[in-house]
C-alpha cells in the first residue's frame, strides 16, 4: 500500500439503482475499493437515476460504479449518463457497470459512455486495477 501514498485519493460512488435489492456485490466491491485506499461513497439501495446523478455530481467522484442485477440496465444506465451530461460531469467521470449484463447489450452501453463492465466471475483485483488505470486525470 505504501506505493499508493503519493497518489491522490480516488473517490468512487458505488450505486444501486432501481428496484433491484441485491446489494451483496455492491458491498463487496465497496470494501475492496476501500481496502485499495479509495474513498467510497455508498448510495444505499433503490436509488433513482436522478438520485445517483445528484450524488455523483455533489460528491465530485472520479468513478461511478453502478451495480445492477435486475436486467433494467438498458433503461437506467443511459438515464444516469444523460443526467451526468446535463451537469457537465460525463466527460471526466469513469462510469463502470457491474452485474448481469448480457454480451449483446455491452457494445451499446460502452458506446453510450460506460468505461468498463464487470460481470460475474470478474475479480476484485481486476476491478481495482481497472479503476486505477482509467480514473480520469484531473488537475
Amino acid at each position: 500500500m505504501s506505493a499508493d501514498a503519493d497518489q491522490r485519493t480516488i473517490r468512487c460512488l458505488v450505486a444501486k439503482v432501481g428496484l433491484d435489492g441485491h446489494d451483496r456485490g455492491a458491498h463487496v466491491i465497496a470494501r475492496a475499493f476501500r481496502d485499495a485506499g479509495f474513498e467510497v461513497i455508498y448510495s444505499g439501495l433503490h436509488r433513482s437515476p436522478d438520485e445517483v446523478v445528484q450524488a455523483a455530481v455533489q460528491e465530485d467522484v472520479d468513478v461511478l460504479g453502478i451495480s445492477i442485477l435486475s436486467g433494467a440496465h438498458n433503461t437506467l444506465v443511459p438515464k444516469i449518463l444523460a443526467g451526468l451530461d446535463e451537469y457537465d460531469a460525463l466527460d471526466d467521470t469513469l462510469v463502470v457497470v457491474g452485474g448481469i449484463i448480457p454480451e449483446d447489450d455491452r457494445p451499446k452501453l460502452k458506446e453510450a459512455g460506460v468505461g468498463g463492465i464487470f460481470g460475474p466471475g470478474a475479480s476484485m483485483e481486476e476491478a481495482v486495477e481497472f479503476v486505477r488505470e482509467n480514473a480520469p486525470q484531473r488537475d
Binding site: 500500500m1 499508493d4 501514498a5 485519493t9 465497496a30 470494501r31 475499493f33 476501500r34 481496502d35 485499495a36 485506499g37 479509495f38 474513498e39 467510497v40 461513497i41 455508498y42 448510495s43 444505499g44 436509488r47 433513482s48 436522478d50 438520485e51 445528484q54 450524488a55 460528491e59
Partner: peptide, 21 residues
C-alpha cells in the same frame, strides 16, 4: 478513514432519504 490504507466508506448519504434527489 482507515489509518492503514487511507481508504474509507462514507455512508452518511444513505440516511439522506427525505431530501434525496
Amino acid at each position: 478513514s482507515s489509518p492503514f490504507t487511507g481508504g474509507s466508506v462514507l455512508g452518511d448519504r444513505i440516511r439522506m432519504a427525505s431530501v434525496s434527489g
